[in-house]
């Protein structure tokens, strides 16, 4: 008997390995089946019209035709409005970071007792659940058109997510250094500053930059409901069928978005 055979032989004696149970299989295939049914059900909502499908390539070509060449005369408006969008996003993110820092501390399960962090976490879930466009509509009707309602909408909406991210970053701080500072006689504030923040500062910056990227995208949309920025002009020109101007706006938006994302990714990668 060769060594290989001996091994196989001794393996075959080990019969105690876990086999998938009926419950496992049911969960697996049942889950797949439910997914498939849900997909078919959702497809019904499309209510596909064959005529529309047939005409769509022509329509799209027609649209592209009317959008080219981009009307460069609105370039200055596009740049100005994009800068406003960036300002809205930046202000909203900074405001949100300022609010999220204490909220995140309070929502971190390793720093506060359950009766504090659990209600705060639920509150943040609710804040996150409100779509940013609803917030913008609300603030536009309360404060009128312009960038201010946009800033507030972005700030509140992103606080829901950023506070949660910050809390998770705080929770990821290793407890060892905290215990060490505790035993050196440091008080709660000092432990937060030196035991926690010194460990996770890069995570906070990373989260904030990521949220800034998202907020720029949100802020572009907010103009549609009159809350300032480039979205306002895109909406204005497309309603007036001035697609060549819309094209210019779109080009500027895409370029700015790509630039910001590349910069942010590069910074985030260098943080450690």
């Amino acid at each position: 008997m060769s060594i290989g055979e001996q091994q196989t032989d001794s393996y075959s004696k080990l019969k105690g390995y876990p086999k998938p149970t009926l419950r496992d299989s049911l969960l697996k295939y049942g889950g797949l089946a439910i997914l498939l049914i849900a997909f078919v059900w959702a497809f019904n909502a499309l209510d596909v019209n064959e005529n529309a499908l047939r005409n769509s390539p022509a329509n799209i070509l027609n649209f592209l035709n009317r959008a080219t060449p981009p009307d460069m005369s609105v370039m200055d408006v596009a740049i100005q409005a994009t800068l406003e969008t960036l300002q809205i996003a930046l202000l909203g993110t900074v405001l949100s970071a300022i609010v999220s820092f204490p909220l995140g501390l309070l929502a971190a399960s390793n720093l506060t007792p359950g009766w504090i962090h659990l209600p705060i976490k639920s509150f943040l879930t609710i804040v996150r659940a409100i779509p940013v466009i609803l917030l913008a509509l609300l603030f536009v009707s309360a404060l009128g058109l312009g960038p201010l309602p946009g800033v507030l909408a972005v700030a509140i909406h992103s606080t829901g997510m950023l506070s949660k991210f910050y809390a998770e970053a705080f929770e990821n701080a290793r407890p060892g250094p905290l215990e060490a500072l505790d035993s050196a006689g440091a008080n709660w504030w000092q432990k937060i500053r030196y035991g926690v923040l010194s460990q996770i500062a890069p995570d906070l910056v990373r989260d904030s930059l990521f949220r800034l990227e998202l907020n720029i995208r949100e802020a572009e949309i907010l103009g549609l409901v009159g809350a300032g920025g480039i979205g306002f002009y895109i909406q204005l020109y497309s309603r007036a069928f001035q697609y060549q101007k819309v094209a210019t706006m779109t080009i500027v938006v895409v370029i700015i978005a790509v630039l910001v994302e590349q910069t942010s990714v590069a910074i985030r990668r260098r943080l450690r």
């Binding site: 060892g176 250094p177 215990e179 060490a180 505790d182 035993s183 050196a184 006689g185 010194s198």
Partner: peptide, 21 residues
Amino acid sequence: RRDLRRRVAFVFQGFNLVERA
């Protein structure tokens, strides 16, 4: 308490340093 604690120092098995500092 704080007075007393700072006069008692602790050296840990896992060092417990802030590693990026």
